[in-house]
Design a protein around this nucleic acid. Structure first.
Lengths: 194, 194, 194, 194
DNA sequence: GACTAATCGAGACGGTACGTCTTGTCTTCGT
DNA sequence: ACGAAGACAAGACGTACCGTCTCGATTAGTC
């Protein structure tokens, strides 16, 4: 028989208000100037209600990320059959965020969150279209013989996402054609003639 | 006529004590638990002496980084003539740090510092052997025809360093052979036969 | 005809558990560190069950006091025929409490409760043998001509109890003979020759 | 040689602002609804500045009491040569406070503070004209043969003040002539004819 | 027996206040 | 004039309780 629960049940409306407030304030202030006290006030909620369900600011942000409330768009890799075009399109969308006003700060805030919280770190990769999504797309390219069978798919995905992070951290502005060059670097037509 | 300076000159011993205390406490506590008050106490210095010369915690950490006090080793790329071997060696040294106890935390703390402070962001790349160093090595490889002349050198460097950052952020442990696989991915022998 | 009630009736076991927990925690922590939440937990009872029957912490403590669960002994004034001896005996018993370990804290906690809650204030006097009891005894002394007919009985009682409270509040330790001196002061053999 | 201190010195203006805010809020809200957070806000002061100098709310209130900021008047015993008249006048002034609107609450709040803090307890007696003042006056009466040489002066003072506290705690309103009756009780013309 | 209430335990909720910690500025004094 | 020491206003931190409300389960009468 199932264990019977007693007492009031978790309020879904409080949960949504908290996540909403977190997303809103995260976009405004970034991760480290995100104050639990402000979240509680903005959400019209007692602080304890936050701490009851999330052990830390990191976990809270991680859940927002998981729910897609922090990043403006989804970064899924589309499969048009052309692996290079698909990757360039994907990286370009990521670079576009960095170009938008506040976009670079948003990305850096997410990275800051990832440094503090393991969950955010893991989920950040996924939210950026990260590994699973890239690996699947690359595997599909292997199947259609666009890539060699022994291509290090995971490392390729990490290198692509990582390059985006480096751009965000080093504040180097993105230029026309950077996305294509990056994809070319990783896809390997940089190899000398054999 | 030149304005003559008056009064005591900046104390070099105070400067070194502050940087030393910063490096020591950074290693112990990481970037966000690094408190200016603690640094001042540890250095035996008034807080104002810190704020007089560095505008923020970020700048202070950036200067430590620049002086090589935060990272255990230098990450220069060595030129043995074999570009693949040199890159694998370099990446492996970076991965090794992640494997050491506290090493992953150190790297994440540096990333956290980079998210807050532009100087740290720029210098972090350089400290990891970043762009200049890599680009020079890659250019040398172009010269010896190991790489094509139109290879996107900067993007390749960013992809390699970025992949290391992604590993640090996502807490995925580094396995045997990962460094080689990563270098292969970026060097491009994953391309299908044309 | 009276409206007939339906549904469950008040649980006597819950009531006793609550009063018991209150008395226990009161002795441990004193009035202001007495938490309703702790009482409920200690009693194995829902908080609402307390609030259903007692409007406040004060009322709860007042009921404990009334049931004699907070003070170790009863402080009735005994009538042996000798008014001075009886009063000295009574005051001495009160002073004895202050001398016991934790006794002074207990008395101060009761005073604290009295400052917050009118019921406790009134009942505290009674619990200490207060006015009714003293007045009755003094009236008996009047009857036996040990006191003048116009003696201000109520004020004498208040002065005696009050002196005990002052000792508790001011933390002045009780010395041998203090009880007798106090009674003598109030009974009036301090008057100069007329 | 004396130890030399360095660094900024305590701000007198902050100290006065804090004591002033405490006195104001104490009068409004009483001891237990007196919030450190409010005091800091009202005084325009950081909370830490309060905690730096006073370990607790009790100590803070004790200092206010000592500075005479909590009680409306001084309760010194005047020496007109007539001990009975002087005591009646003194007690009447104390009873008058209880009669004023909010006065009873003020007195109870002081008692509450005294239950929590030893300093307040001691100083409360003194502020009410307590022992020293009373004892001196009584000793003067002994000198002028209005009281017997062996009169228990301290106990008489405690009994008088205590009676006032009992009135405050038990919420019994003060009536015309109560002060005189109380003084008579303690001065001892209640003794039967010898 | 079914229905209807009231009570129970548990515990989530919006809040207030706590006492600590850190930030960056300001002040004082010793060198 | 500079440096150490350290006080200051501000405000976030995470914890403890407050008193209310909500949940199912249980317990008594009434029908």
């Amino acid at each position: 028989m199932a264990e019977r629960r007693r007492g009031a049940v978790r309020s879904e409306s409080a949960r949504r208000a908290i996540l909403g407030a977190t997303a809103r304030l995260f976009a405004q202030a970034g991760y480290d100037h995100l104050a639990m006290e402000r979240i509680a006030a903005e959400a019209g909620v007692g602080k304890q209600t936050i701490y009851r369900w999330w052990p830390s600011k990191g976990e809270l942000v991680a859940e927002c990320l998981l729910e897609g409330m922090l990043l403006p768009q989804r970064f899924a890799l589309i499969d048009t059959g052309d692996i290079r075009a698909d990757l360039v399109d994907w990286i370009q969308r990521l670079f576009d965020i960095l170009g938008e006003p506040g976009g670079e700060g948003l990305m850096r805030s997410l990275i800051a969150a990832a440094t503090e919280n393991a969950d955010v770190g893991r989920r950040l990769r996924e939210s950026l279209g990260g590994t699973s999504s890239v690996t699947v797309r690359l595997a599909s390219a292997v199947a259609s013989s666009q890539l060699r069978a022994d291509a290090p798919l995971q490392e390729m995905g990490e290198a692509l996402i990582g390059a985006v992070l480096v751009r965000a951290l080093s504040r180097v502005p993105v230029a026309e054609g950077d996305a294509a060059r990056l994809v070319d670097a990783v896809l390997g037509n940089s190899v000398g003639a054999s």
